[in-house]
Design a binder for these strands. Structure first.
Length: 288
DNA sequence: TATGAGCGC
């Protein structure tokens, strides 16, 4: 296999020699450096028009700027020994490389807990699960043994815990509810007697606003920033391609109050955001 | 391009 031709930059091209065939009489060119300042010296010889031997010294600075920009720490890192896949790399290459090594991450545990304790707890859970459905406790309505949280008929009425709830709504705790057993979470709809009949329930999804034509790098916090000005927001969602992680360019914002959603639609539809014109309209509720 | 994701049985 022939080596690929080395691509020369114009600055590296040899000077055109007009000395003709007598070049072999001249000493070979000498290249000195580059030194630590990136200064390279080239000493060449040629014949001038009158046939005199002339020494030509060229001084060039090579990569001076790039070197100057390296911090002390970066320079220090260059002297580190290679490890992992890079051990087998060419010793002279100082380039960063992409590794295919498997990196095992530790599973986060509760602070202070030991791995063994976790396993024991797991066994206990497994045993209890076999014995009955005591552990099937819906986190939304607190009902035991009937359904999982995802199947809860009231799941869309549950308060959000994803951090996007407007803090001005104030914290609601089980302690503020009446008739609760100690330490048990009581969802808002079940408070005050637990009789659901006649309680006006509005699906969270109802004040859902669809936002399209988002720029690719718009994320949920950005949407929240934009929409929270109109009133308390219960949920923000940006559709993301599961494979690539890039935004699909649309999302949803749910408002607690329908009027706020309406104002947001009126104000923000057609609004320029990140060089794009937003489309903001009512969302058709998700199937399910 | 264009109407959403998800845990424990």
């Amino acid at each position: 296999m022939a080596a690929p031709p080395q691509k020369l930059r114009w600055g590296e091209l040899e000077e055109e020699d007009d000395g003709g065939d007598l070049d072999f009489l001249l000493p070979p060119p000498v290249v000195l450096g580059p030194d630590e300042n990136g200064v390279k010296k080239t000493i060449q010889y040629r014949f001038d028009e009158e046939g005199n031997k002339v020494k030509v010294t060229t001084t060039t600075r090579v990569r001076k700027l790039a070197r100057a920009r390296l911090s002390k720490r970066a320079l220090e890192r260059r002297s580190w020994a290679k490890f992992g896949d890079a051990v087998h790399e060419d010793v002279g290459s100082r380039l960063t490389m992409v590794s295919t090594e498997e990196i095992l991450l530790e599973r986060p545990r509760a602070p202070g807990s030991k791995a063994e304790e976790t396993n024991i707890a797991g066994d206990v859970l497994a045993a209890a699960g076999k014995a009955g459905a005591v552990l099937m406790v819906c986190r939304t309505c607190g009902k035991k043994g009937d359904h999982w949280t995802s199947k809860c008929p009231y799941k869309d009425l549950a308060p959000q815990t994803d951090g996007f709830i407007d803090k001005s709504l104030g914290p609601e705790t089980a302690a503020s509810a009446s008739g609760t057993s100690k330490g048990t979470y009581v969802p808002p709809g079940m408070r005050g007697g637990g009789d659901r009949s006649g309680v006006e329930m509005k699906r969270r999804d109802e004040n859902s606003v669809r936002v399209t034509n988002l720029s690719e790098d718009t994320r949920e916090p950005d949407l929240l920033e934009l929409f929270r000005a109109f009133g308390p927001v219960s949920r923000v969602y940006v559709a993301v391609d599961q494979k690539t992680g890039v935004s699909r360019g649309f999302g949803f914002v749910n408002f607690i109050h329908r009027e706020d959603a309406e104002r947001a639609i009126n104000k923000l539809n057609g609004y320029g955001y990140d060089n794009l014109i937003l489309r903001v309209e009512w969302a058709t509720p998700r199937p399910n």
